[in-house]
Design a binder for these strands. Structure first.
Length: 923
RNA sequence: AGGACUGUAGCUCAGUUGGUUAGAGCGCAUCGUUGACAUCGAUGAGGUCGGCGAUUCGAAUUCGCCCAGUCCUACCA
């Protein structure tokens, strides 16, 4: 083995072997355990959030697989309608073409070509992370079987009247020329203006002033509204306004939606271009005048002067004209929420179009109940509130998109404008008796990508066919995802799966935190603070990192800033930490917190941890390979240390198992870390050395220790494997043959997980070794504080030695002498005082290091004074508690007894300290 | 406006149903290299647990208010 752990040299080979041997497939035996991978966008690449969630999913999958469950991780990608279309369209644009030059059919086949070439980025990256999904079942939402499911769901919902078509106001992205759902619109505050406009009454009897943030929409105004009880405007209700610029007559109406307190109390109403106005228009039966084209230019419903102008140019022109006519009263600065498309960043227009909708109310009801009655549990539980809040206010879902890439809506129109929905044109003709001469054309639109994602839990299992997988893996065990897609995806899956299978899609939903940068800022390309998980695995030099972060930046100023920050934060670039260290970091950070600030320091720490495991293993192998480890037979004599480490390991197994069951990967990681480093490496390996290296220990003792070394390590590797798959399997391949395991042609990943075994715990051995540790630490303490060289052998005296202390001393003296670097150990006779010494207390026993020639009087007095000070403070607190009548009267017996013991112990310590102080002062 | 979350050592975070002498890693200080590991070891310094109040014999932990920060949903033209 190399002297330091080199992740790069082991990872690839390891992964290839696993995949080739088919270890990722469900075994077919045991309890079903299934996780659905939230399908990443096919155009996407692995970001820190993915890496985090995939680590957690893989840890769960590996854990359950090892536990013997029939474990399936269903993976795949989604077709990401808008994103994918944009990627390929951009490639065409680079060649001076648009998708219209190709036509729909050719464009779609271009996308498939692109997918075949570049659609596998993220799955390749997942392999680098060591994830173990069943790649043979990898699904893609545009595959035939999934498309078939999509069509089936659409037709069935339509037959039940749950899908309908209607002309409604939708969120229109004028760059993409498509409707988008509410969830795809981001509302951000931006600086803008409020224009106050004077609208004259038609009869010339007066005027009123309206305020607007979008003056250009006045071309489509069809009313002005006031509050019905607003006294200022009572006389105006029912009168008509002569709308400036257009000259159209529009009514003044009363509606209590209007806030009389806000602005002037008069609101211009543009039903075709504002969601609130739209509702009001419906209430009052107002005409809806659309004034925009698909590109958000002014259309022919507007006066000629403005036709063809872009909406923002039109705004300037209209404001200028209104001003010239004296209509503009004033302009104020005003911050307002501007809706922008999450893909394009374009300002979204409320726009009147024909679209398809899912009526979600009846679907939502069982989906809400499934969470209310506990069938589906959120972890942490709080997220159910977020879920309810949205589900109780759920709006019909606009599912049509004016794109070419996606599942085409299975609806056909005849020339008379009738709509027929069916699985194919033939089916439609047959069902509705439409003869061949009658032309039918299919709807041009496709479905929202999330529509197909919503079917993921059952469509990937073969639905609508009745497959064994549908029985076995629906519901899946747990969904691991971020809170940002509870609405987009989680809620919709619950609705659809309930509807079409009658079952819930998953029993638990583990909501992970969001990975942020070390300052708590969201990682984003425009901030330039993104980290690529692969760069943390492989490392990256500074220059490529800068190029990567600033590449494609449109604003040079921003790029300069990002470059500066990057150079400052990573002057040496990023080290290669390896997959296991990265995964361990993610696990260790997976607490219940909703925000996770990613700290490079921790990755480095866990890389060191990997190295620690590596070197500990190296030590174990050096002492077991080519030695008798008692794997077949041979007498084993276990030392106290052997029994102790076995005991500690059992407790660690119990802790890790509990933590894994509660999705507390941070606690699981911490237990593994603590045991490995602070118990196994710091103590047990040291304790084993005297046994292995001494000529005085018997073969049975040596065999016992070797057996414990190799077997504890072997089990520790299994315990850690779900989190750190590569290093554990690599080491295990060498370790397992030295144990009783049949380790030919296998892998740790298909070995059983370790189980807590109470018969292997040993409280006495545990107590004995803790005693030993205290003695050693006591001596080291004195060494450290007295500045005695570690190499200097010390003669130690023990005072107040009880029978139990004597027993422990006898059992551990050899190791004690070695680990504390002692010259001699002398037990003082009862009543014997001993020379002036620096002293450490272990229970009531005093460990004394005589001062002669070694210890500085003043330093030792200072040390004692410090200890006295600390004990006195604690004593005062405990004394106070015990003096409190209420405490003694009401606290449970056990608690009081504990306080009393504590006090007695402290009193004992204090008197010993005082005694020592007196002795030393007397020198 | 409504809802959720966070505030513990210089930094990143644990702290289970109230009973600890409030912990870990990193960082810091001092010392240390003859083979498991300097990606290391030993020792140490460092916290009025955001603030105020309440409940309780007892609060980092429960409740109320306040301060600071984050996020989500809905929005006023």
């Amino acid at each position: 083995m190399d002297k330091t752990f080199n992740p790069h040299s082991i990872e690839q080979a390891c992964y290839q072997a696993w995949e080739e041997k088919g270890y990722f497939k469900a075994s077919g035996t045991g309890e079903p355990y299934c996780i659905l991978l939230p399908p990443p966008n096919v155009t996407g690449s692995l970001h820190m959030g993915h890496a985090f969630q995939h680590t957690i999913m893989d840890a769960l999958i590996r854990y359950n697989r090892m536990k013997g469950n029939d474990t399936l991780w269903q993976c795949g990608t989604d077709h990401a309608g808008i994103a994918t279309q944009m990627v390929v369209e951009r490639q065409l644009n680079a060649k001076g073409l648009t998708r219209h030059d190709l036509g729909r059919e050719d464009f779609v086949s271009k996308i498939w070509e692109w997918k075949a070439e570049s659609g596998g980025t993220i799955t390749k990256q997942m392999r680098r992370l060591g994830t173990s999904p069943d790649w043979t079942r990898e699904a893609f939402t545009m595959d035939d079987d999934l498309s078939n499911a999509v069509q089936e769901v659409f037709v069935q919902l339509h037959e039940e009247g749950l899908i309908y078509r209607g002309k409604r106001l939708v969120n229109w992205d004028p760059v993409l020329h498509t409707a988008v759902s509410d969830l795809e619109v981001l509302n951000e505050e931006e600086a803008g203006f409020m224009w106050h406009l004077r609208y004259p009454l038609a009869d010339g009897s007066g005027e009123l002033v309206v305020a607007t943030t979008r003056p250009e929409t006045m071309l489509g105004d069809t009313a002005v509204a006031v509050h019905p009880e607003d006294e200022r405007y009572q006389s105006l209700i029912g009168k008509e306004i002569k709308l400036p610029l257009t000259g159209r007559l529009i009514p003044v109406i009363a509606d209590d939606y209007v806030d009389a307190e806000f602005g002037t109390g008069c609101v211009k109403i543009t039903p075709a271009h504002d969601f609130n106005d739209y509702d009001m228009g419906k209430r009052h039966d107002l005409p809806m005048i659309n004034i925009l084209t698909d590109d958000a230019k002014i259309n022919d419903n507007a006066p000629e002067a403005y036709r063809g102008l872009d909406r923002f140019d039109a705004r300037k022109q209209i404001v200028a004209d209104l001003n010239a006519q004296g209509v503009l009263v004033k302009v104020e600065d005003h911050t307002l929420k501007v809706p922008r498309g999450d893909r394009t960043g374009a300002v979204i227009e409320p726009y009147l179009t024909d679209q398809w909708y899912v009526a979600v109310e009846s679907l939502a009801k069982p989906a809400i109940e499934a969470v209310e009655n506990g069938e589906i549990k959120f972890v942490p539980e709080n997220w159910s509130k977020t879920y309810y809040q949205w589900m109780h206010n759920i709006q019909d879902w606009c599912i049509s998109r004016q794109l070419w890439w996606g599942h085409r809506i299975p609806a056909w129109y005849d020339d008379a404008g009738n709509v027929y929905v069916g699985r194919s044109e033939a089916e439609v003709r047959e069902k509705h008796n439409i003869p061949a001469p009658t032309a039918l054309r299919q709807d041009e639109d496709v479905l929202d990508t999330w529509f197909s994602s919503a079917l993921w839990p059952f469509a990937t299992m073969g639905w609508p066919d009745k497959t064994p997988e549908l029985d076995k893996f629906v519901p899946s065990s747990v969904l691991v995802t971020g809170f940002d897609i509870i609405f987009f995806w989680v809620a919709r899956m619950i609705m659809m799966t309930k509807k079409f299978t009658g079952k819930i899609p998953f029993k638990e939903i583990y909501i992970t935190g969001l990975i942020r940068d070390e300052n708590g800022d969201k990682m984003s390309k425009s901030k330039g603070n993104v980290l690529d998980p692969i760069d943390l695995i492989d490392g990256i030099e500074l220059e490529p990192l800068v190029t990567k972060r600033t590449g494609g930046m449109m604003q040079p100023k921003l790029a300069a800033k990002i470059e500066k920050n990057t150079r400052k934060q990573f002057p040496e670039g990023i080290n290669a930490y390896g997959t296991d260290a990265l995964r361990f970091t993610f696990a260790a950070m997976a607490s219940t917190s909703r925000d996770i600030n990613f700290d490079m320091g921790r990755v480095e720490g866990y890389r060191n941890f990997c190295n620690k495991i590596w070197n500990a293993s190296r030590f174990v192998l050096m002492n077991t390979e080519e030695f008798d480890t008692g794997k077949d037979c041979g007498e084993l004599s276990l030392s106290l240390a052997d029994e102790w480490i076995i005991d500690r390991f059992q407790h660690t197994v119990a802790d890790v198992t509990k933590a894994m069951g509660e999705y507390r990967f941070d606690l699981a990681a911490q237990s593994i870390y603590e045991f490995t480093w602070n118990q196994f490496c710091d103590w047990y390996l040291e304790l084993s050395k005297p046994v292995l290296q001494s000529d005085e220990t018997t073969d049975a003792e040596k065999r016992g220790t070797r057996h414990t070394l190799i077997n504890t390590l072997e089990q520790l590797l299994r315990l850690a494997h779900p989190i750190m798959p590569f290093i554990t399997d690599t080491i295990w391949q060498r370790v397992a043959p030295l144990t009783a395991i049949n380790a030919t042609d296998t892998s740790i990943m298909v070995q059983p997980f370790v189980q807590f075994d109470e018969t292997k715990t040993n409280a006495q051995a545990s107590g004995d070794i803790e005693w030993l540790k205290q003695v050693i630490v006591g001596v080291r303490n004195i060494r450290g504080e007295m500045d005695i060289a570690p190499s200097k052998a010390l003669d130690v005296l023990l005072k107040n030695v009880s029978a139990e202390d004597a027993r422990r001393l006898a059992a551990t003296q050899a190791v004690l002498t070695k680990l504390a670097r002692l010259g001699s150990v002398t037990v003082l006779e009862a009543g014997e005082k001993g020379p002036a010494s620096a002293t450490a207390l272990v229970g009531e026993m005093e460990v004394m290091i005589p001062m002669a020639g070694l210890i500085d009087k003043a330093a030792e007095l200072a040390r004692i004074a410090k200890a006295v000070d600390k004990i006195e403070k604690d004593m005062a607190r405990t004394q106070g508690k015990l003096n409190n009548q209420g405490f003694v009267a009401k606290a449970p017996e056990a608690v009081i007894a504990k306080e009393r013991d504590k006090l007695a112990d402290m009193q004992m310590q204090l008197s010993k300290l005082e005694e020592q102080k007196a002795t030393i002062e007397a020198l």
